[in-house]
Simulated assay, not measured.
Amino acid sequence: MITLYDFWRGLDKDQRIKFCETAKISYGYMESHLIHGRKKPSMETVQKMVDASNKQLTHESIFDFFLNKSSVA
């Protein structure tokens, strides 16, 4: 199961921009907050990320990513 961080790092800059546009998430917010687990997305944003990833990300992988980040801190 691919993590949000690994998915994001596997994209080139143009793909990241396209992903953010499709998911309606600002590039800066994604880069500085979400992929580092500093902020937790809404359920609506999680759905948009799953859809924008062409199903490479799953709800489960995103939930695990953010739940594991909060339990480590």
Score class of each variant (00 low, 15 high):
E44T: 11
N68I: 05
S70H: 06
S61W: 09
S42F: 12
I62G: 02
S32G: 07
R16F: 02
K13L: 15
S71H: 04
M49E: 03
E31P: 00
Q15C: 08
W8R: 09
K69S: 01
S26V: 09
Y27R: 11
S26W: 11
V46T: 14
R9S: 12
Y27A: 06
L57T: 03
D51K: 11
F19H: 02
S26C: 05
K24W: 00
V46H: 02
H59V: 13
S26L: 07
V72Y: 05
M49H: 04
S71M: 09
D12F: 04
F65S: 02
Q56H: 05
F63Y: 12
S42V: 13
S71P: 00
Y29I: 02
P41M: 12
S26N: 12
G10N: 15
L67S: 05
N54E: 14
G37E: 02
S26I: 10
I25W: 02
S71T: 12
E31N: 14
F7R: 00
T22L: 12
F19Q: 02
M30A: 14
D12N: 15
T3H: 05
G10M: 12
N54F: 05
E21K: 15
K55Q: 14
M1R: 14
Y29F: 14
Q47D: 09
G10W: 13
Q15P: 06
F63Q: 04
K39T: 12
I35A: 08
Y27I: 13
M30R: 10
L11I: 15
S61V: 07
R9L: 14
A23K: 07
V72A: 14
G28S: 14
A73V: 10
R38P: 01
K39W: 07
H36G: 01
S70C: 03
E21F: 02
T58R: 08
E21C: 05
H36N: 01
T45G: 04
D14M: 11
G10H: 12
Q56I: 09
H59P: 00
V72E: 15
I25A: 01
I25L: 12
K39G: 02
Q15E: 15
T3P: 05
Y5C: 04
F65N: 02
Q15G: 09
A23W: 06
H33L: 05
V72H: 08
L4M: 07
M43A: 10
L57I: 09
W8I: 00
L57R: 00
S42H: 13
M43K: 09
Q56F: 03
A23C: 06
M49F: 03
F66W: 09
L34C: 06
C20S: 03
D12K: 13
Q47I: 11
K39Q: 11
A23E: 08
R38A: 02
F7K: 01
N54W: 03
W8G: 10
D14C: 05
D6V: 04
I62A: 01
D12S: 08
C20H: 01
A52I: 10
F7I: 04
Y27D: 06
Y5F: 10
T58L: 06
E60S: 10
N68K: 10
G28Q: 13
T22A: 13
Q47F: 06
M43V: 11
A52C: 09
E60P: 00
Q56W: 02
E44S: 09
T3G: 10
E31G: 05
H59T: 13
N54S: 13
R16D: 06
G10K: 11
S71K: 13
F7S: 01
H59E: 10
I17T: 04
F66T: 08
M1K: 15
E44Y: 10
K40R: 08
S32K: 15
